[in-house]
Computed example of a mutant assay.
Amino acid sequence: MSKGVLLVNLGSPDSTDPNDVKKYLDEFLMDERVIDVPFWARSLIVRGIILNTRPKKSAEAYEKIWWEEGSPLIVLSERLQEKVNELTSVPVALAMRYGKPSIKSGLQELHDQGVDEVLLFPLYPQFAMATTETIVVLAEELRKKDFPNMEFTTVPAFYNHPDYIRVLANSISEKLKGVDYEHILFSYHGVPKRHIRKSDITKSHCKIDGSCCQTPSPAHQFCYRHQCYETTRLVAEYLELKKETYTVTFQSRLGFDPWLQPPTDRTIERMGINGTKNLAVVTPAFVSDCLETLEEIAMEGKEIFHEVGGKDFTVVPCLNDREDWVKVLARWVDEWAFSEPVKA
C-alpha cells in the first residue's frame, strides 16, 4: 500500500468580505458537533439569528488580522505542510474542516498520487467534539462515498506527548525570556459543558466539579477539559512554574449555554483590576495563529487589560511552522510510515 498524510486544521473564510464570512460561518456553525442541537433549532439559531447579525462584525475582526497573502491560519498551515513535506518520506497534503481546501480535495490530492493508506492528522492537541471528532466523522463519510479503497489511521490527541510538551514549553520560554511577567494565562478555546459530558465514554465520570479531571478514568481519552489541564500541568512542570503563577481559562463563548469556566476575558479584566501589571497569555488549543489568537487575545484581551490598569500584555505565538515543531511532526509521520505507531 502507498502511504500519505492529511493535515487538517479548522479553516477560514475565503476573504474578509461579509458574504464570504457568512458562507464560512454557515458551514461551521451548522455542524451538528459544533452547535449540537436538533437541526430545526440549529437552523433557527444560526440562519435565523446569527447569520443575520454576526457576519459583518466577524468580517471586521478578520480585516484586523488578515495578511497580504490571505488568512493567517491558512498561510501558516500551508507553510507547516510544505516544511513537513520536505522532511518526510511520504506525501503530505493539507485540508480544512470548513472552507478551502476541503477534506475531500485533500483526500483527492493524495488519491491522485496513488495513496491508499492515509494518516489523518487533526491539528488539535486536545480532543473535542467540535474539532477532532467532526474531522474524523466527515473524513470517514467521504472515504465510504468517494474513496472506498482508502484506509485511515487517525493521530490521537497529543496533548500529553513529551515531544509536543517540550516544543510548546520551549516556545513559551523563548518568548518570555527577559519579560518581567507576573502571571501566565493558559487560554484554551471554550466548549459547552454538555460537550464534556457527551464525550464521556463511561457515561458517569465527568462531573466538571474540580476533581474528576484529576481522578484517573478511561473518560480522559476523550475529555477536552482534562486534556487542557493536563497540557498545562505538564508544561508548568517542564518550565518549573509555581502553581500560583499560572491559571487555566477558556475563551470564545457563544450563546447562553453553560460553558467551561473561568472565561479568559473576565479573568484578564479581574487580574488587571486586582493589580496585575504584567500578564502573559499562551493559547495551547491552537497550533496555528488565527482569529481567536490574533484578534480575540492579542487585540481584545490586550485592550481589556490596559483599560483596567494593566501595563505589559505579552502573547506567546502558536507553534505555527517553528522548526522544532516541524521536525516533531515529520518524525511522527515517518514513524507511522514505517509502521511504528505515534503514541500520545
Rank of each mutant, 00 (worst) to 15 (best):
G48C: 03
A337S: 02
F250E: 03
K207T: 10
E300G: 05
P317T: 14
P125F: 07
S211K: 15
T16P: 00
A219S: 15
E117S: 11
F158R: 11
C223E: 12
V92T: 02
S252L: 06
A219F: 02
I201A: 06
E63N: 01
A344H: 09
K277P: 03
V8W: 08
G11I: 01
T131N: 07
I65R: 14
L7S: 04
L76W: 13
C213R: 13
D324L: 04
V328G: 04
G301V: 12
T131F: 09
E292C: 02
I103F: 15
D334F: 00
P13A: 06
Y24W: 01
G210H: 14
S204I: 06
V46P: 13
D321S: 12
P125M: 06
S204Y: 14
L176N: 14
D200P: 13
W66N: 01
H195K: 15
Q126M: 05
G178P: 13
I304F: 07
K203P: 08
F39S: 07
P148H: 10
V34A: 11
V191D: 01
I201P: 11
Q227I: 01
P125G: 09
E63C: 00
D334A: 00
D321Q: 09
K207H: 13
K57C: 03
C223Y: 13
S2F: 10
K104M: 07
T267C: 06
V333G: 04
N160M: 11
A61S: 10
D257R: 05
P258R: 07
P258T: 05
T293W: 02
T276C: 09
C213N: 12
V179C: 13
V136T: 09
E86Y: 04
R233T: 05
N52K: 14
G4S: 01
F313T: 07
C228P: 12
K177A: 08
A344M: 06
V155H: 13
V8C: 03
K198A: 07
I50E: 01
H306W: 13
Q113A: 05
T267I: 05
V118Y: 13
Y181M: 11
W336V: 01
L76S: 06
T247Q: 14
N52S: 03
S173H: 14
P317S: 08
R194V: 06
I49P: 03
P192S: 09
P122T: 13
L51W: 04
V328M: 07
R322W: 05
S12C: 09
P91A: 04
C212A: 10
R253T: 02
I201Q: 14
G114A: 07
D324C: 04
F338N: 06
E69A: 11
I50F: 09
E303R: 15
R197L: 03
L110D: 06
